[in-house]
Computed example of a mutant assay.
Amino acid sequence: MFQFDATWMVFVGLLALRIAATLLMTPVFYAVPLPASVRSLLVVGVSLALAAGLPVPSAPWMGWSALMVAAMFEVALGAMLGLSVLLAFGAFAVAGQLLDVQLGFGIAQIVDPVTKRSVPILTSAFGYLAVLMFFLVNGHHALLRGIAYSLERFPVGAPWSMSDSVAPVMKQAAGLFSLGFALAAPVVFCILLIEFALGVIGRNLPQMNMFTMGIPVKIIAGLVALTLWFTGIGGVMTRTYASISSAWQGIFVAAPASQGRGR
C-alpha cells in the first residue's frame, strides 16, 4: 500500500529528475511538438509508474543540503545516460552533414521544428529518419527498460562515481564519426566516382563547362544512390542503436558492488 508521505514524494521527485534529464538529452523527447506541460506530465507519469514497484528506502537525503546533493547526482546520472542516446543520434547528423556538403545542399537550409534552428536538408531528413527507426525497432521500450534497470544499479538519491562511467561514453564518442561515415559511405563513394568521371570528361572536353554540368549530375546521382542505399542501411543503423546499449551496459557495469545490490 502506498504511503503518500514526504519521503515518498521526495523519492518520486528525485526519480523524476533522473528521467527528465535523460529524456531532455535525447531527440526522442522532441520528436513530436508537445507543450511543456504535457512533457512534464509524461515525466511525472513514468516516475510514478516506476516508483510504484520500488520500495522506498530510508531517506539519507533528508535535509535541504543532502537533498540538493542527491538532486545533483540524479541530474548528472540522467544526463550521462541521455548523452549516450544523443551520441547515437549524432552519428545520423554526421552522415547528413557529410552528404549535404558532397551534394551541395549545405547552403540550402530549412528550419527544423525539433531543434528550432536552421539545418541543411539532408541533415534534417536523417534526423527524422533516426527518430522514426528508433520507434520502429522499439527503441523507446529499450530506453524505458534501461532507465528501470538503472534504478537497481544506482539507487535513487545515492552517490555514484562519475569517473567510472565516463569511459564507456568516451568510447562511444570515439566511434561517432566512424558510424556516421558508415551511414553515408556508399553514397559518398558513388559521388567520388561521379567526380572522377566528370574530371576525366572535363580533361578531354575542355570546351564543356563542367561546373555548370557537374552540380545537377552530382545531385541526381547522389539522390539515386541514397535511395538505393536506404534498402541496405538497416545493418548500420542497428549498429548505431546498439552503441547506446553498449554504453549503458558499460555505465551499469562500472557501478560499485555496493550500489549494484537491490534495496
Rank of each mutant, 00 (worst) to 15 (best):
F2L: 10
W8H: 11
V10Q: 15
I19T: 06
I19W: 03
L23S: 05
L24Q: 12
M25P: 00
T26L: 14
V28T: 06
F29V: 03
Y30S: 15
V32A: 10
S37I: 13
V38L: 14
S40I: 15
S40Q: 13
L42I: 03
V46T: 07
L50H: 06
A52D: 12
A52P: 00
A52K: 01
S58Y: 08
G63M: 13
S65T: 12
S65N: 10
A66P: 00
L67G: 12
A70C: 04
A70M: 04
A71S: 10
F73R: 07
F73V: 00
M80F: 10
M80L: 15
S84F: 03
L86R: 14
L87P: 00
G90Y: 02
G90D: 09
G96A: 06
G96E: 03
L98C: 03
V101C: 01
V101R: 10
L103T: 07
V114W: 05
V114C: 05
R117C: 06
S118Q: 12
P120H: 06
L122A: 06
A125L: 14
A125E: 08
A125Q: 11
L129A: 13
M133S: 08
M133K: 01
V137N: 06
A148P: 00
Y149S: 13
E152R: 10
R153M: 13
G157A: 09
A158F: 14
W160Y: 10
S161T: 06
S161Y: 13
S163W: 14
D164R: 07
V166P: 00
K171F: 08
Q172Y: 06
A174K: 02
F181R: 12
P186G: 05
V187Q: 05
L192M: 15
F196N: 07
N204V: 11
N204W: 11
Q207E: 15
M210S: 06
M213C: 02
I215W: 15
V217P: 00
L223D: 01
L228N: 03
W229R: 03
I233Y: 02
G235M: 05
M237A: 13
S245C: 00
S245D: 10
W248T: 03
Q249R: 10
A254Y: 05
P256K: 04
R261P: 01
